[in-house]
Design a protein around this nucleic acid. Structure first.
Lengths: 359, 359
DNA sequence: CGCGCCGTAGAAAGCGCTTTCTACGGCGAT
DNA sequence: ATCGCCGTAGAAAGCGCTTTCTACGGCGCG
């Protein structure tokens, strides 16, 4: 049926062991022998049997990347950066060539149980590494389950990296490194910016209430508000609505906020996509951006600079963070001290925010 | 170290064979025995060893999804739909539960060699199925190489499905089914729409010249032009520029077109993202959309409806196509007769196109 | 000149599963 | 009552690799 190692060995007139060693390059093989083997590989169009190899070596070259929503560029950018680090360039068809991995992305849809299922599936494949991107639900039970799962993965030799996700509280040593985003700092910077412009009535269309990212961004927002002496009921809850990370949530959230507080002069959105929805609703209500109402996003996705008006937002270095996570997963880069390195968020002021109407 | 099948067998006081049969559910096992085994699995927190299982059964539960750009929602939507069909809901931690697969997406970046490398990697993993989404480069050598690779995959029992990609010319039987998009028809409909509105000077910011999708959309465009008696030099080449599928290409392409033909009244873009870039450039040139220049996109991605103005475009049922591809890959759905089913494209007229300035 | 070491290659024992083939009761049929 | 079949379970032979352990020349050294 299919070509095996021994077929290659026969053709090259060596033992299977030698072929294996040539392919893995982890044992001295005379140049002439190597040549002969490689030629045989080529002539027979041999492709390594991954499962067999994984079984014997009890490790595979699979690297899993978990994302919440594959259709969201936020994750796409990170996943793509992780994959790029795996350098998928082997050249010869054997799929060998030192350390190159099959980086695969798994779409959890943000659902806790799918997250666990994928983790199990990856554990079952004896994945070499797992990168978890994005936040998770803020539920102790689920956090514990995930932490336990990751601990077992780590035990089995899988390298676990968190990218844009808060460190584990339960089994912190299960992960090689955590690269959380500074969502709180970003949220604070954004709201401070709005406050400095003179805004006092700031709405917030936040993400799903149960997500850690939502909580952190909101905390930053409130910290800024509190620092300006604007804590209390209204700012704290009255002008905050929750919804998923999509455009529709922004649209509906903005309408709801407008209903609650027609005098609103600024809206902070959960992210850039939501901000676009907010803009649409405001425009529909006959409000100009930023003359009548300022709008701010989060993440600085590529389209944000092109929106009309260009979106003020908080830049998260998704690509850089993903790349770093990839290197960490591969072992190319040393983990940060304490295994945690917060990724800074940077305020990017564009055209969608301005001073409020006077009066 | 890790828990094996025999551990479970010992604990349940049965043979390993029986445990395997319970887990795979493809052999009669007495209810009481099954119970006992499942309890043991649970108590030991057993996770199947994928590679071992794949080796013995010579098939794995890995399903690969190849995409050109994971950060592009065009692919994200399809990939997500494919994954959704794999139903990743096993419940118990064993990762068993009939037929549920590990659907993984592989990002080729549109590069022919990465496409081949991923295919090799998947072949090496003895993937159960492979779904190739999106178009490919219009190069006979590469097409032949891919076709050959797919033929070998098919030979080894991997189910190959093409989604939004033209059927193979070389080894057509290697693929189970091809679901190409009607890019030509869509392109024709779009340009016809513009012609009916009265446009006569229509620019085209096309995709990369070497891609099949680009060629097909362009062919549709020219067919419409020719049907209106507007073939020839200008329409055929002078008002067409090429670039990647990103916003920047639209921006620069539009500027170039404006330079070549200031009297331009409409621009067709390679896709919606490009169209956004076109809009930005036009606006920057002081042109209103659609009063001065009409703009049309392609794909109908979610943001297109929200753009300002809302984009006239051609809807491709990405989600439905992906889902169907997933079912085909799983074997849940019968392949279409002839193994090819073209996916229809539908013109969606919104606010970015209108009648040209008179005079 | 002989001893041991180094560089290179082979033999063979698994890795943890699946699956065929065999075994063994208990049942209906003859 | 006996035969054979069905339903269920075990034994054991691999699946195609990796890797340890062993083997074997040729070399430098004593």
């Amino acid at each position: 049926m299919s070509v095996t190692l021994s077929d290659v060995a026969n053709r090259a007139k060596v033992s299977p062991a030698t072929v294996s060693r040539v392919l893995n390059g982890n044992y001295p093989v005379a140049a002439a022998t190597r040549e002969r083997v490689l030629r045989a590989v080529d002539e027979l169009d041999y492709v390594l049997n991954g499962p067999a190899s994984a079984l014997a070596a009890s490790t595979s070259d699979l690297v899993g990347i978990l994302v919440n929503d594959i259709a969201d560029p936020f994750f796409g950018i990170m996943a793509s950066a992780v994959q790029a680090e795996m350098g998928c360039q082997d050249g010869d068809g054997t799929g060998r060539a030192g350390g190159e991995k099959l980086a695969v992305v798994c779409n959890t849809g943000g659902a806790p149980d799918r997250e666990l299922t994928y983790l199990t599936l990856l554990q079952r494949q004896r994945a070499a590494a797992v990168v978890l991107t994005g936040d998770t639900v803020d539920d102790p039970a689920h956090a514990a389950a995930v932490a336990a799962k990751l601990a077992r993965l780590a035990e089995a030799g899988t390298r676990v990296v968190l990218c844009g996700r808060p460190p584990l509280t339960a089994h912190p040593d299960a992960v090689l490194a955590a690269l959380p985003f500074d969502n709180r700092g970003g949220g604070r910077a954004l709201t401070s910016h709005l406050l400095e412009l003179g805004h006092r009535s700031i709405g917030h269309v936040a993400g799903p209430a149960e997500r850690t990212t939502t909580r952190h961004r909101l905390e930053g927002h409130r910290e800024a508000l509190a620092a300006a002496g604007l804590g209390g009921d209204r700012a704290g809850g009255g002008l905050t609505v929750h919804g998923p990370y999509d455009r529709r949530s922004g649209y509906e959230g903005a309408r709801e906020l407008l209903r609650r507080e027609p005098g609103l002069t600024a809206v902070v959105a959960a992210n850039d996509t939501v901000a676009l929805g907010v803009c649409a609703a405001l425009r529909e209500a006959g409000l100009r951006i930023p003359q009548d109402v300022s709008v701010a996003g989060f993440d600085d996705l590529p389209f944000s600079a092109d929106a009309v008006p260009a979106l003020t937002t908080v830049r998260l270095p998704l690509q850089a963070a993903g790349a770093r996570a990839g290197r960490l997963a591969l072992g190319t880069e040393k983990p940060p001290p304490g295994r945690v390195a917060e990724i800074a968020a940077e305020l990017v002021v564009r055209d969608s925010t301005g001073a409020p109407r006077t009066g």
